[in-house]
């Protein structure tokens, strides 16, 4: 079998002084109007490669919106600075948004980012193995390699590879989702309430596995969650949303 050379980016990660993976300043997003106007503001957010950060806030505070902005899913209304240095590239995401370069943004999202959703993060019509192979194949990676095999073993889904998602328990689905999000070795994983659908014990285990894998592979993680206690317990750097209490509508500001 063809053995691919180790990716250049790992080399870059270990031998260069760490620079910022994501550098955001003065980003705002809003939708709606009048007393339904909803605004989210991120004055400054700097994320180093491999860093684990929690985005916390009450439900409805716009945590998911922050994830959408940083995951290149929603266009920010204003951005003072929006820079990306994942996978050895140096990209001004702000400029890409200004140009509405959806293709380029989707390409960065596909190659360099991974997503863990609250539930149903797998395509229902593919087996677990098919889900894992999907992005790898489209990126020209072999469907399996030692790195992925190790992860499958650690998250204990080896026996479930040939089952479809609906045949798996919620915990198994969530573990498979984590492997899927990491399978193509992204530089950043965005997780939206990854443990809220699980009972507390299972939630702890899944969170541990996610963070352990990210640490092991040098992948930065942004977790949007309302579970403040769990985040405090894990000792994660926290960016929390505070209600700005505007005269009309809703406004939240996310800062360290």
């Amino acid at each position: 079998m063809l053995k691919l050379p180790p990716p250049a980016r790992r080399h870059a990660l270990t031998h260069r002084p760490p620079s910022l993976l994501l550098d955001v300043e003065g980003m705002t997003f809003s939708r709606g109007a009048g007393n339904q106007r909803f605004t989210v503001e991120v004055p400054a957010l700097k994320l180093r490669p491999g860093e684990l950060v929690a985005i916390t806030g009450r439900s409805g505070s716009g945590k998911s919106t922050v994830l959408e902005l940083l995951g290149l899913l929603s266009a920010p209304h204003r951005h003072g600075r929006f820079l990306w240095r994942g996978h050895g590239r140096n990209i001004d995401l702000g400029k890409l948004w200004n140009r509405r370069a959806h293709g380029a943004l989707a390409e960065i999202r596909g190659t360099s980012m991974g997503f863990v959703l609250q539930t149903h993060g797998l395509l229902p019509f593919l087996t677990v193995a098919g889900n894992l192979a999907l992005i790898r194949r489209s990126l020209g990676l072999p469907p399996r390699d030692a790195h992925l095999d190790a992860m499958i073993e650690r998250l204990d889904i080896g026996g479930k590879l040939h089952k479809k998602p609906h045949e798996l328990s919620v915990g198994e689905q969530q573990r498979a989702s984590i492997v899927r999000a990491l399978a193509h070795r992204p530089a950043l994983v965005l997780a939206d309430e990854p443990t809220s659908a699980l009972d507390p014990g299972l939630g702890d285990r899944v969170m541990d596995l996610l963070l352990a894998q990210a640490k092991e592979h040098g992948i930065a993680v942004l977790i949007a969650t309302h579970e403040v206690d769990r985040v405090a317990q894990l000792g994660l750097r926290t960016v929390s949303g505070t209600d700005q209490k505007p005269a009309t509508g809703f406004a939240w500001r996310f800062a360290d």
Binding site: A106, R109, F115, L123
Partner: peptide, 10 residues
């Protein structure tokens, strides 16, 4: 939507 999220284009 998932396909989109995974970076698959239009």
């Amino acid at each position: 939507a998932l396909l989109r999220l995974y970076g698959f284009g239009n």
